[in-house]
């Protein structure tokens, strides 16, 4: 018996049982369904979000139904009209859109040389240093970073102290629009660099040499060769940064001090301060709409298919 055990170890027995089970439960003629079976758990998980969105839609109708007792079809419109008739929301929407655009532009401008140097440098050490300097803030989280900026930009903070050394009066650096935008740019830089880097890697270095041997100086090489060729990365990075900063909550809340609300903050306030679920839900769907619209416009202007950036294959 002992020799049987060594000849047929436990692991093999487990595997054979599993194989047999698989054969019984899933015969070969079902094999066409295997990929769908593998995708099913992911589809089910994301379904939670879809149900959640349906709940939001339902919630916005529900409140209005109770207040007016009229068929719900009219209420959806009335709900959005009420939300959009308030100048406050328009101001917040405008602030978010403008902020997101500025943040996207700045993030792309500053992320590009960083990604370029990281990809092109011959020194493995420098590359590792740049990668670590990028990942550390990326992995630290928004709240901690915002807290760091509070220490730096506060009235008795590092920045004002240093300004004091050169004889400048303490400035109010926090709780204004530029502070929020600055915090957002810092938050977005790692995303932008990580989306840009693969696109720059894909540009062969020889093409740059070719451009310069044909007489282009580095600026012309950059504008005529590198920039156009890294378009997929720019669009991918731009999309991610734009949507993330448009819908951000923490930076406006912490660095804006309540005076620089973005759309997400307004939604939060509707749910938890005013407790007007219907209005909050309407605003949420409106934000989803704006986000999709922005993404759609970028797709039509800069070409589709770049969303595959986030995915290995098309």
């Amino acid at each position: 018996m002992r020799s049987y055990r060594t000849a047929y170890p436990f692991r093999w027995r487990v595997m054979d049982t599993l194989e047999m089970l698989a054969r019984v439960l899933w015969p070969n003629r079902f094999s066409g369904a295997v990929p769908y079976l593998m995708l099913a758990p992911a589809v089910l998980l994301v379904l939670l979000l879809v149900i959640g969105m349906a709940q939001i839609a339902d919630s916005s109708l529900h409140v209005l139904d109770r207040s007016t007792f009229l068929p719900s079809a009219d209420f959806t419109l009335a709900n959005y009209q009420t939300a959009l008739r308030q100048p406050l929301y328009w101001m917040i929407i405008w602030r978010s859109l403008l902020g997101a655009a500025v943040v996207t532009l700045l993030s792309l401008i500053f992320a590009f040389p960083y990604a370029y140097l990281m990809v092109r440098t011959p020194s493995a050490l420098l590359r590792k240093f740049l990668l670590i300097a990028l990942f550390l803030p990326f992995f630290i989280g928004q709240v901690v970073r915002a807290y760091g900026w509070l220490i730096i930009l506060g009235n008795q903070g590092v920045m004002n102290e240093m300004l004091g050394w050169v004889g400048i009066e303490p400035q109010r650096l926090l709780f204004n629009y530029p502070a929020v935008l600055f915090g957002l740019v810092q938050y977005m830089l790692p995303f932008a660099v990580l989306m840009l880097a693969p696109a720059i890697t894909a540009i062969p270095e020889e093409i740059e040499s070719a451009a310069s041997s044909l007489g282009a100086n580095w600026w012309r090489t950059f504008t005529h060769v590198i920039l156009p060729m890294s378009k997929p990365g720019l669009v991918g990075a731009g999309l991610v940064v734009l949507t993330l900063s448009l819908t951000d909550f923490a930076m406006p809340a912490v660095l804006g001090g309540g005076s620089q609300d973005f759309i997400a903050n307004a939604i939060y306030d509707q749910f938890f301060r005013t407790s007007d679920q219907g209005m909050g839900a309407a605003l949420t769907l409106f934000l989803v709409g704006i986000g999709s619209l922005v993404v759609g416009v970028i797709f039509t202007v800069f070409g589709a298919g770049t969303l595959a950036m986030g995915r290995g294959k098309k």
Binding site: Q55, A264, I267, T284, G291
Partner: peptide, 27 residues
Amino acid sequence: SLQVYLLLPFTIPLIGSGIGLMLLFGQ
């Protein structure tokens, strides 16, 4: 379409996902 569907967690704003899940889990 499946890829677009699986990218929904990226395209739906976090505040939307959060509130949707909050309502769903609440129910």
